[in-house]
Design a protein around this nucleic acid. Sequence first.
DNA 1: TCCTAATTGCGATTTTATCTCAAATGCATA
DNA 2: TATGCATTTGAGATAAAATCGCAATTAGGA
Lengths: 164, 164
Amino acid sequence: MKSHAGRRAAVAGLEGLCPRRGLPLTVQRRAVLEALAARRDHPTADQLYEDVARRLPGISRATVYRALEVMVRAGVVRKVWYAGAATRFEVPERRHHHLVCVLCDAVVDLHQPALDRLPGPGRAARGFRVLDYSVQFMGVCAQCARSTKTPPRQSSGRQSHEGK
Amino acid sequence: MKSHAGRRAAVAGLEGLCPRRGLPLTVQRRAVLEALAARRDHPTADQLYEDVARRLPGISRATVYRALEVMVRAGVVRKVWYAGAATRFEVPERRHHHLVCVLCDAVVDLHQPALDRLPGPGRAARGFRVLDYSVQFMGVCAQCARSTKTPPRQSSGRQSHEGK
DNA sequence: TCCTAATTGCGATTTTATCTCAAATGCATA
DNA sequence: TATGCATTTGAGATAAAATCGCAATTAGGA
Ligand SMILES: [Zn+2]
Ligand SMILES: [Zn+2]
Ligand SMILES: [Zn+2]
Ligand SMILES: [Zn+2]
């Protein structure tokens, strides 16, 4: 779709950045969003930094990371493989799904029988052999909803109320 | 929760580690798997290292990471927030899902109308406000299925055939 | 028990993400 | 359009997470 969309095009969601006082729309943020919209894949923050730096030489890597963070919170962009700072593991037992808080990265299991027999990707995934699947619900957890202020996301200790 | 579960208990999937010649079952791997099985949450590799080191003083951090890697490949454990080395992003457009290769971490979009109106978590997720969801299919991509040998996972360049 | 392939430990290294704070900028207001 | 203040940026240091290389050790079949 629109291969060269994003040149100066109005990228969807941009207006969501400066709704009320407190989220200025800077050229850097615009550039990061346009760079992301211009790709069809799922780039990493560093790949986006490379892209943006091409048009905005001198931009700081930290700025790209920060721009992505505020945009994730604003709902303009999404983390695909919702990764915290570290990869998490589990022993695959009975099928279950996950609730992920987009503000604090808390992860909670969800058992929902209605989701246990979803149709597979079928012929849409030619060549891809499916081993398992699970549904990820992105949203805001109770604790974060309660604390209207800036969410607890200092440093790397992001599992503030994660069960442990 | 079985506080001392995993003491010497037969952890499910252990035998899957030494099926044919080539995957010795070491005390370290057993310890990592038992440590993981003993937790109800979704620990990070480093948290598991802490747990294991308590019973196996002197174990190397690298060993824990390697043990998790082989077990993921053997299907004994699963990466929860399927994270590669880096977090990926995308602009949330029309609803779609993802095919993730467990061997090379390739990520591909999947459009499947049948999955676009799944029932939400409902009352099972008290307090959690769902913003969006998507289904993750874990499996083996065509390229990896073709190359029966050790998958392409050298260094950080893990998006070998990821579309770009 | 012996032999060989595979794994481990250790430390160095790379990759990814975050922090600090002075200087620059967005933007509401006049 | 000019002014003022709160927010953001840049640069580099730092922290956190993951990986690498290689000699010594170990698992497991013969
Ligand atoms: Zn939360
Ligand atoms: Zn889970
Ligand atoms: Zn693959
Ligand atoms: Zn996608």
